[in-house]
Write a protein that binds this DNA or RNA. Structure first.
Length: 684
DNA sequence: AGTCCAATAAACATAC
DNA sequence: AGTATGTTTATTGGAC
């Protein structure tokens, strides 16, 4: 019946359903392959992604073509049938019985495999084989497909109704007038559909022309058929609105477009983003990301004047643009002229945000999965107590810095990389990743704080994990001690209480007590930031925050543009700002209250942003003065909120095993230690 | 290569 | 004497 048009496919006749399966195989198989290539070059990876993206597009297009053909065929048959009925009255209603194979399966067999299922979409997103632009196109194509699907359902109903009426007429012997009336209506409906289709094609072409849609050269615009709004999934509908709203004026020429609300102003229609940011438990991560994005941009502008997230390889990387710019100045010129602040750019930006949100959603899910996996594996690994080696955590900065890299395990976290693209996925300051589950040998490595991850939020987020898994928290002893002290109600702890905090919070510190306790004492004595205060009960340790900040100078140089960018982002990212404000509102809530514990992610975001801001503001304020750092207007009461992590990607090179049972005399009585400390805890 | 920093180890002092 | 606490020095290794 049909022939597959794929070049790699053996040309063979295919039935309708077979063709769909076949096409689906072509498009879905590469994306669903779970086996990661152990070694592959970036170039081949890009090629593979391009092929996949193209395959999917081609599949969708082919499916649509088939659908159209079937529709037209059906339409012709319908017309013939009507003509015959008109000529011969109620002569032969049985004719319908001869075509069920064509009529009935149309909407079933044709539609089912067409629309990419959420699982497939998830796979695509998970593997991130598509660029944001491609995702954008895919989203819109999906939307088109769904429109078409809805239309087919509607059409099918109409047809069933027609058949029902024909049967009724056959049995009841009614006059053919009503039948003719219905048939005429059907015909008119189909004509209207064709008309709509043409208009829709024009609209798509217009979008493509203006850069809102990227369609492969030589690939005709997808035939779209509009439907009443209520039938469109809200999110896609909103997306569609936003994309098309900028071009509504020239498109809303006919009444047919009344089914698509193209007159919505995109600037004010921030509902979906806002909603998702607030309602979605993972949305706070989005907010944080959005906070990071302008900083990245600003850094890239200032530190790498010729490096721009939207400029690469002499081409403008604005979604759907790809304009060739010979040099950076010309790119800037192009950027300012072609992508100035207008409705179109805003709409494109919003689409990009949607794409990012999708990706982030997927990222969040995968993070949860990873954490569950690790927790599960830990539980199992601790069962055989033979020689459980502690794991050491690393932040994921060692992982990809490109949004295109996409192993679920090596999530494409991109912490404030100056050259990162506009929509990188940043690791939330939360979920733990390990380079591997294997034991790292007795190699001693520098053990520095997790990059850009506030210790408070990290611990809060992964509290249960740290408690149960023998993984080393990716923070220095000094940071941990400070955290312990600042968590205490009176911001002071005895040495023993500090010990207890370590063992209580981290399973890792329930072994080799002699080693780490010595380290704790050593740190307390060595660092000026820890002040010993004589007490009635004895001596307690407190934190001198000023000294602590001195000890860890912010590597992010005084960068006013960070704050400036955050403020200026308001125009574009109203919903994101809302999330930011919401999180800022939480600043007054101390850590480990409901904000952090009840909703770790949100609390996490709050403290992350807080600390981030504190770090930045502090530096802009106190560069020349040695006075108290972090006394910005956003400085919370609790010194725990002060940013402490250096913004150095390399700092994230996580610690590997420092303490193993192999390279030093282990403290075999750590169990006893812990029991003792457990008793102490009870006393507390 | 040199420097810095943090982890680790250990010696030593002091108090209880 | 033994332990906890605190100080100091030395070494090691990673990162810059």
């Amino acid at each position: 019946m049909f022939q597959c048009v794929f070049s790699s496919s053996v040309l063979q006749p295919l039935s309708t359903s077979c063709l769909f399966k076949h096409l689906f195989y072509h498009s879905a198989t590469p994306a669903s392959q779970k086996q990661p290539e152990p070694i592959y070059s970036k170039k081949t990876e890009i090629q593979r992604q391009t092929v996949q993206a193209h395959s999917i597009k081609l599949f969708i297009f082919s499916a649509l073509q088939v659908a159209r053909q079937l529709l037209l065929q059906q339409q012709q048959q319908q017309q013939q049938q009507q003509q015959q009925q008109q000529v011969s009255g109620l002569k032969s209603p049985k004719r319908n019985d001869k075509q069920p194979a064509l009529q009935v399966p149309v909407s079933v067999a044709m539609m089912t495999p067409q629309v990419i299922t959420p699982q497939q979409m998830q796979q695509i997103l998970q593997q991130q084989v598509l660029s944001p632009q491609q995702l954008q196109v895919l989203l819109q194509q999906q939307q088109a497909l769904m429109l078409q699907q809805q239309l087919q359902e509607f059409y099918k109903k109409q047809q069933e109704q027609l058949q029902l009426q024909l049967l009724q007429q056959q049995h009841a012997g009614k006059q053919p007038k009503e039948q003719q009336q219905v048939a005429t209506q059907q015909l008119a409906f189909q004509q209207q559909l064709l008309q709509m289709q043409q208009l829709q094609q024009q609209h798509l072409l217009s979008l493509q022309r203006q850069g809102l849609l990227t369609i492969q050269p030589g690939q005709p615009a997808l035939p779209l058929q509009p439907l009443p709004q209520g039938m469109i999934p809200t999110e896609l509908q909103q997306l569609w609105k936003e994309v098309t709203s900028a071009h509504s004026a020239e498109e809303t020429t006919g009444n047919n477009h009344s089914s698509l609300d193209l007159t919505t102003t995109c600037v004010s229609s921030s509902a979906p983003s806002k909603t998702s940011l607030i309602m979605n438990p993972h949305a706070s991560t989005n907010g944080q990301l959005s906070v990071h994005t302008p900083k990245r941009e600003s850094m890239s502008h200032e530190e790498h004047p010729h490096s721009h997230p939207l400029y690469g390889h002499g081409v403008c990387k604005w979604p759907g643009c790809e304009a060739v710019c010979e040099d950076f100045p010309s790119f800037l010129k192009h950027l300012n002229s072609e992508h100035a602040l207008d409705d179109r750019s805003t709409a494109q930006c919003r689409v990009q945000m949607q794409v990012v949100q999708q990706l982030e959603l997927q990222l969040a899910k995968d993070k949860e999965r990873l954490q569950a996996m690790m927790t599960h594996l830990h539980v199992k690994s601790t069962e055989p107590k033979a020689a459980p080696q502690p794991l050491n955590l690393v932040s994921s900065v060692t992982l990809s810095k490109s949004a295109s890299e996409a192993s679920p395990q090596s999530l494409p976290h991109t912490p404030t990389t100056p050259t990162a693209p506009l929509t990188p996925v940043t690791q939330g300051p939360s979920v733990i990743t390990t380079t591997s589950m294997h034991t790292v040998g007795p190699i001693r490595r520098r053990y520095s704080d997790k990059y850009n991850v506030p210790i408070s939020s990290d611990i809060a987020q992964n509290q249960e994990f740290y408690k149960n898994a023998e993984v080393r928290p990716p923070f220095t002893y000094a940071s941990l001690i400070r955290q312990a002290i600042l968590e205490s109600p009176e911001k002071q702890l005895t040495l023993n209480e500090i010990y207890n905090w370590f063992t209580r919070m981290f399973a890792y510190f329930r072994r080799n007590a002699a080693t780490w306790k010595n380290a704790v004492r050593h740190n307390l004595s060595l660092h000026k930031c820890f002040v010993r205060v004589e007490n009635v009960k004895g001596a307690v340790w407190t934190v001198d925050e000023v000294e602590f900040q001195k000890r860890r100078p912010q590597k992010i140089s005084g960068n006013p543009s960070l704050i400036k960018n955050m403020q200026s982002s308001h125009a574009y990212c109203t919903p994101l700002n809302a999330a930011l404000q919401a999180s800022m509102a939480e600043n007054s809530i101390p850590l480990y209250t409901t904000a952090s514990m009840g909703n770790p992610t949100l609390g996490n975001l709050a403290s992350a942003i807080r600390e981030e801001l504190n770090g930045a503001m502090e530096h802009t304020n106190s560069n020349e003065s040695d006075s108290s750092p972090g006394r910005s207007p956003m400085q919370p009461v609790h010194p725990v909120h002060v940013k402490e992590e250096p913004l150095d990607p390399e700092e994230a090179e996580g610690p590997l095993s420092l303490v193993t049972t192999a390279n030093h005399s282990p403290d075999f009585d750590h169990d006893r230690d812990y029991e003792d400390e457990a008793v102490n805890e009870d006393i507390e």
